[in-house]
Design a protein around this nucleic acid. Structure first.
Lengths: 221, 221
DNA sequence: CAATTTAAAAATGTATTCAAAATGAGAAAT
DNA sequence: ATTTCTCATTTTGAATACATTTTTAAATTG
């Protein structure tokens, strides 16, 4: 009676695998041995293959025919390429979000942001990545452009898996988030767009800086 | 001996299905009966399911658990949403293409464009869609941002399937293409970006106009 | 001892099978 | 005549089965 089945195994396996990759339970470049993974997840290889197909299209996994599926690793160049795209897409999203602003979502997000600000440094570091993903995703949702939600979602996911542990000061990001939210609240499209632009620009240069300092290893393909 | 196997059945089936959808051999909203399709393509349902999974992620197909897969139909709103995204992404691509210009690709594309211009109206109408897809794809390839190539490719595909037969005057597009190519040839990023912007803007308003004139049917979801 | 060959084991790609759910046609009831 | 119910048929979801290829490790060779 209470049961809701709008998710089949395919979908569940897909979500779980995605999570395992993003959280680095599955290492970059690691081969995904089908039997092993399937029994680990308690399913057969069949739903696994559909999940691989989806993950391949969002560049989280790579297929080499007859040799198997591998967790895709991202080079620094690719990470910056993604930021270049985010810079274009998320500004569009922010602008549209300001136009179609849903205040209940907006206020919920504001509260969450304030909550994060009041956390101590240690807790913040742990909780930030997931919050950050949600922040960006929800703003895209406010734009009411499903394609945008989809694409930005999968990019942020790729980003997420790759910048874990290279955040500098999450607190700075939080204040940038607040100004983006402020612009959306006042329905100012252009301001929202430029606030988002500088937010992502900062993140991007943070990565460039990090790459210089710690010579981000460019994994071969 | 001559055989090259870097494509498995999954990939072949995926490509073929994609083509069938874009070329309207499979109608929007049509249910994809697995056994039937599988035997039509001469494969089992297994590779079909992987193909569905990929097509679902690029929004060409929609899954309703326990009921099946359906060819996704695109509403006018969604089509315009896609154009909004193309406007952001392809401008980025054009700008980068001008920065990293590969002259051999550029000249090949220029020749092709001139060839199109010299076709008579009837032939042009037939040949244009495929050429147009190639034009936009190759420019993204010149940008050397794989993610961009991927995303724009799948969007243009969706577009392609939906604006077939609603082109007004392909010849106008061709001259816009020439000015984009000119800007890239002279390595002028900003000019390339703005030329691409106005090209896509024109296409977008053409669609808006078409929608007004012929009341584009907004298919229900 | 390194390089090559060979044979066994493991893993992949794909088809097949089977249980559970959805669909559809006809019978019964209102 | 329309709705509801029943049951056979179709279709899906997911596991299993099997042929082919890849990997591995041992055995052989130079």
């Amino acid at each position: 009676m209470y049961r809701v089945i709008n998710e089949d195994l395919n979908e569940q396996v897909y979500r779980r695998l995605r999570e395992m990759i993003v959280k680095r339970e599955l290492q970059p470049n690691q081969k995904l041995i089908q039997e092993e993974l399937a029994s680990r997840l308690g399913v057969s290889r069949t739903p696994l293959l559909s999940a691989f197909a989806k993950l391949e299209r969002e560049m989280l996994v790579k297929s080499i025919p007859r040799r198997g599926y591998f967790v895709r690793s991202i080079t620094l160049k690719e990470l910056l390429d993604i930021y270049e795209i985010r810079l274009r897409l998320e500004t569009l999203g922010a602008s549209e979000a300001a136009r179609k602003c849903d205040h209940s979502v907006l206020e919920a997000l504001s509260v969450k942001t304030d909550d994060m600000i009041s956390l101590d440094a240690e807790k913040l570091k742990v909780a930030f990545p997931e919050y950050d993903y949600e922040f960006h995703t929800l703003i895209m949702k406010m734009s009411d452009n499903d394609f945008l939600v989809n694409m930005v979602g999968s990019f942020n996911l790729v980003t997420l898996g790759n910048i874990m542990g290279m955040y500098r000061d999450p607190r700075g990001s939080l204040f940038e988030h607040k100004s983006i939210l402020g612009a959306i609240r006042s329905l100012d499209c252009e301001l929202a767009e430029s606030a988002m632009f500088s937010h992502i620009s900062v993140a991007k240069s943070r990565i460039e800086q990090y790459a210089k300092d710690f010579s981000y290893e460019a994994e071969e393909r």
